[in-house]
Write a protein that binds this DNA or RNA. Structure first.
Lengths: 241, 241
DNA sequence: CGTCAGGTTGATTAGGATCAACACAGGTGG
DNA sequence: CCACCTGTGTTGATCCTAATCAACCTGACG
């Protein structure tokens, strides 16, 4: 459950330049560094439950988590995917609205909520950075609304694969050449929750994409994309011009 | 097309205490007041097109607008509903990502984007207020993702009616007694775009809810809700505890 | 009075959901 | 070492909700 963290201070932090601290100047940075603490969760653990009092906010340092809306009758919808540098929690809210679950092993960089809220009030850079990140997330949520409201199952899978492909490239840098296998951080079931489908439909569409030569399996959870443009086409994105 | 505005300065402004200016102190307020200008659009007009350069950001003073994602093959999804006090645009983005369309006659309180961005940088209160509003919108977007991904047509209609009912009450104050008719700002077609359905399905579900006694028509665009709890039940909201 | 936008209703179809059986890998314990 | 179990994934058969295609209604307006 507790996992060793391969660094001790912010200098070596992999998300230093993309998280909420990205635009802090050195004095702001000292304050953040002083109040941070790390926490780890293993795959499958719930980080917070809807309704819980939120004692901290945090940045994802490593791993993947999901934000989920769960309803008594068993219906579930993943309403956000949290990857390294993404932020959990919001200043000013007492209790969580959604469940947050670690999908892979996750390391968080946490801040006590009360202290963090004071910092947001006193440090304009942080409020501005958080605003920019919140607005980006809002755009992402709106794109996802289009997917959930209007895309076919096939298009949803293709869009999801592109999303993971892009984030993989942006996190790992473009070290690896294009046709590198991309690792899916979610099970078929978790994907279905994210895509507004059932797990059977997800499986079927994967099989169909494979049969059509759009993807190839390295393993059940690792996929090659021989032709990215073809995948974009399937996803309903405009490739052109 | 141009509509008279029934007030000249912020004192009489109906959204003074809910828009981005809500938490400004008096000196900040003077700055905002100095740079604002009003603009009106008549029902059906497009306020901005996706891809347009955004020369201003704005608060909705009166009327209803929608944010839409439109795709070449004709599919359309409304990804946001803008009611009085909601904000259009974002500091730091050059071009609009989505179409914004006036559904009813709309009055905006506009700020030139460049000037506004400077203000956001220099005025922490505004960045903080915008952050709070952006996070609220993000929560609303996530609730809508659940609706689009998991709710049935009937539940979607009921949820939409509740949404309008709540916003009607909160804007008009609770002057009117509970069983007041609520005015639907959207056509069946526009509702279908928002709910991820077709207009025929919207009509059918309205008819069914009427047949079931959940709603009553005052006119095609005005609805009574005799029993709010019953409607909540249909919407899949937990009444109880 | 004719036209047109908005709305309703019916018949049919299709895309995913649901129910069900089975495959496969990895881990555990006897 | 093997038998068993559990979590994950695949595939098939059937059903059902909402989409599609189509006809018609209603009221506002020039």
């Amino acid at each position: 459950m507790t996992k060793t963290i391969p660094f001790r201070n912010c200098d070596g932090c992999p998300i230093r330049h993309r998280a909420i601290c990205a635009t802090c100047d050195s004095s702001e940075f000292v304050q953040l560094e002083a109040m941070k603490y790390y926490r780890s969760y293993s795959a499958g653990q719930t980080i917070k439950w809807a309704g819980d009092r939120m004692e901290f906010v945090a940045s994802i340092v490593a791993g993947t988590a999901t934000i989920q809306h769960l309803v008594e009758d068993g219906r579930k919808q993943t309403v956000g995917l949290l990857l390294p540098s993404d932020f959990i929690g919001r200043p000013g809210r007492e209790t969580a609205l959604y469940d947050v679950t670690a999908i892979t092993d996750v390391t968080l960089c946490c801040f006590r909520r009360g202290e963090f809220e004071k910092l947001v009030e006193s440090t304009p850079h942080i409020a501005q950075r958080m605003l920019a990140m919140a607005l980006d997330e809002l755009d992402a949520a709106r794109d996802w609304m289009f997917l959930l409201g209007r895309k076919t199952a096939r298009e949803r899978i293709a869009s999801f694969l592109l999303l993971i492909q892009r984030r993989t490239v942006s996190i790992e840098g473009l070290a690896a050449p294009q046709p590198a296998p991309i690792l899916l951080p979610l099970t078929r079931d978790a994907m279905s929750d994210y895509l507004g489908l059932t797990l059977e439909t997800v499986t079927r569409q994967f099989s169909k994409l494979k049969a059509d030569g759009i993807i190839e399996y390295a393993s059940k959870r690792e996929v090659f994309i021989p032709d990215l443009a073809a995948l974009r086409d399937v996803a309903g994105e405009v490739t052109g011009y």
